[in-house]
Computed example of a mutant assay.
Amino acid sequence: MKLRLITLTAMISALCAVGAMIKVPVGVTSAALDSAPAFLGAAFLPAPAAGIAAAIGHIVSAGVGGFPYGPFHILIALEMYIVVWGFTRLHQKNHSISKWIFAIIANGILSPLPFYWLISPKMFYGVTPGILITTIINVVIAWICLPILSKALARREVHE
């Protein structure tokens, strides 16, 4: 069972890495489609594993975007872990609407908030609209795909 968990987490992490290479032109070079696969991981991964995939996706996204790795990107990776962990927990408890609202607010608005104090208010106000737009795109992709993936997994479990 652990091998299956590790394999599925690695697969979602790899999909996050692929999504990290699909940049959204919003002015922030690490804005990409890296979190949609992590949100999809909620269908079959436990919350910690889905969060790890999201954190890895951000690290790849930052690297592809040309950002040096450092404390800010470690913070963002930790935030991605928390957002996807929370989303996965809400998904597992069948909170069909609140999980999407949580994902948009937590990732699109709350995640950039520490940079208001760490860098500057101007930076926060400058990057938040782009991050919010990118978050909504990632959430819409996951919103479309998650029910399909969940049905496919349910069908597969019946036939196993």
Rank of each mutant, 00 (worst) to 15 (best):
1 M>R: 12
1 M>K: 14
4 R>P: 02
6 I>Q: 10
7 T>K: 04
8 L>G: 03
9 T>Y: 08
9 T>E: 07
10 A>Y: 04
10 A>F: 01
11 M>Q: 07
14 A>S: 04
14 A>Y: 02
15 L>R: 05
16 C>Q: 02
16 C>T: 01
17 A>T: 03
18 V>A: 11
20 A>R: 01
21 M>S: 11
22 I>C: 11
25 P>V: 05
27 G>N: 08
28 V>S: 04
29 T>W: 15
30 S>D: 13
30 S>E: 12
31 A>I: 13
31 A>V: 15
33 L>Q: 06
33 L>Y: 04
34 D>V: 09
34 D>A: 15
34 D>Y: 14
37 P>D: 06
38 A>Q: 10
40 L>H: 08
40 L>Y: 08
41 G>K: 09
41 G>Q: 07
41 G>M: 07
42 A>Y: 01
45 L>Y: 09
46 P>W: 06
47 A>I: 02
48 P>M: 08
48 P>L: 10
49 A>L: 11
51 G>K: 08
51 G>V: 02
54 A>H: 03
54 A>F: 03
55 A>N: 08
56 I>C: 03
56 I>P: 01
57 G>R: 11
58 H>N: 08
59 I>G: 08
61 S>G: 15
61 S>K: 13
65 G>C: 08
69 Y>H: 13
71 P>C: 09
71 P>I: 14
71 P>G: 15
73 H>A: 02
74 I>G: 11
74 I>K: 09
75 L>F: 12
76 I>K: 06
77 A>W: 05
77 A>Q: 08
77 A>L: 09
78 L>M: 14
80 M>C: 13
80 M>S: 12
82 I>Q: 02
85 W>P: 02
86 G>F: 08
87 F>M: 10
87 F>L: 12
88 T>Y: 08
89 R>T: 11
91 H>D: 14
91 H>I: 00
92 Q>T: 07
92 Q>L: 14
92 Q>R: 15
93 K>N: 12
94 N>W: 12
95 H>A: 13
95 H>G: 03
97 I>V: 15
98 S>N: 12
100 W>P: 00
101 I>L: 02
103 A>P: 01
104 I>D: 00
105 I>Y: 02
106 A>L: 06
109 I>K: 05
112 P>S: 10
112 P>V: 08
113 L>Y: 11
114 P>W: 07
115 F>C: 03
116 Y>W: 12
116 Y>T: 05
118 L>I: 13
118 L>H: 06
126 G>F: 03
129 P>M: 07
131 I>G: 00
132 L>M: 10
132 L>I: 01
132 L>H: 00
132 L>N: 00
133 I>N: 00
134 T>K: 04
134 T>V: 04
135 T>G: 02
136 I>K: 09
138 N>Q: 10
139 V>Y: 08
140 V>W: 04
142 A>Y: 04
142 A>E: 01
147 P>G: 06
149 L>G: 05
150 S>Q: 15
153 L>M: 14
153 L>S: 01
155 R>G: 10
156 R>Q: 15
157 E>M: 13
158 V>I: 15
159 H>M: 11
